[in-house]
């Protein structure tokens, strides 16, 4: 058995959970520091997706940070590209680049752009930022995997507001049409977008039933419960003949009390003082 498939099978026992909790905490702290230092960015949607991405990268993803172009790697596309700080913090943690890069987020010449740019950042699989496009690219990559009889999996992460983009549903149709059971879409269902509550602005509900109707296998999870999240990735990997959608119930701004469930914190950087308070709450003061 290869090292990677051992990792895939690693049971989620208490020590794994403990490790994930520690990792997620470090990621959240870095996200806060990075956005505060940059003076702009998207803390709300970055924090809501930390546990989903942390669980994937540190418990299930088959990848080689020292060989980012390894052809058999699993692919991750952050369709909701504005959560880039979380992806960067995790890629840095994995060793794709030195963590000293993190505090250069959004600065001129930095490898860490405001939204993911695969031409600049090792480990970034696809350039995103324009909502609704990443999932279609994921469909293409999953189809390529099928054509080449590869066993890699493709994961893509979407926001609930992003589901308002028509292209998402074009991609959903295509994923089911080509029976892409190597594809897993994770929806960060935090209930908020920029201008307010998703349900009030343009209601995407019922989200699970929509994906089902489009021909996907669907599972709802608590997006902050590592046991449930990892179980969902394993469930998705076992689905045959159709793609899998994990609808993750999350809290926007999760982990920083004054940011939680507030649309205001979608795209505002914390001041130095706010960042200090946030880091204290997160256990790093």
């Amino acid at each position: 058995m290869s090292a990677s498939s051992k990792l895939l099978r690693r049971p989620v026992n208490d020590s794994v959970i403990k490790e994930l909790v520690e990792r997620a905490k470090a990621v959240r702290c870095n996200v806060v520091k990075m956005i505060a230092r940059a003076g702009s960015g998207h803390p709300g949607g970055s924090l809501s997706i930390v546990d989903l991405l942390t669980a994937l990268y540190f418990a299930r993803l088959n990848h080689r940070p020292k060989d980012p172009h390894w052809t058999d790697r699993d692919r991750v596309i952050l369709s909701k590209g504005h959560a880039a700080p979380t992806l960067y913090a995790i890629l840095g943690e994995c060793g794709y680049f030195p963590k000293t890069e993190l505090l250069k987020l959004r600065k001129l010449g930095s490898m860490l752009q405001g939204h993911p740019d695969m031409m600049r950042t090792p480990g970034v699989e696809m350039s995103t930022g324009s909502l609704g496009q990443g999932i279609s690219v994921a469909v293409g990559m999953a189809l390529a995997g099928k054509l080449d009889k590869k066993s890699y999996r493709v994961y893509t992460f979407l926001g609930d507001g992003e589901l308002q983009e028509g292209q998402v549903w074009e991609a959903a149709m295509a994923g089911a049409h080509y029976a892409l059971d190597n594809l897993c879409a994770v929806i960060d269902f935090n209930g908020l977008q920029i201008d307010g509550r998703v349900q009030e602005i343009m209601n995407p509900e019922p989200i699970p039933r929509k994906w089902e109707a489009f021909g996907w296998a669907v599972k709802e999870v608590n997006g902050h419960d590592f046991k449930e999240i990892v179980a969902a990735y394993d469930w998705a990997a076992g689905i045959k003949g159709k793609p899998a959608a994990v609808v993750a119930h999350t809290i926007k701004g999760k982990g920083v009390s004054f940011m939680e469930s507030k649309a205001h914190w979608h795209g505002v950087a914390p001041s130095a003082e706010e960042a200090r308070r946030a880091l204290m709450e997160l256990g790093e003061g």
């Binding site: 279609s136 690219v137 293409g140 990559m141 995997g145 080449d148 149709m173």
Partner: peptide, 19 residues
């Protein structure tokens, strides 16, 4: 199908996998 935006991005995904 009649879904040109998805077609373009699917093409990108396929191309990034060597096609």
């Amino acid at each position: 199908g009649v879904a040109e935006q998805n077609m373009v991005n699917m093409a990108v995904g396929l191309a990034l996998c060597g096609k």
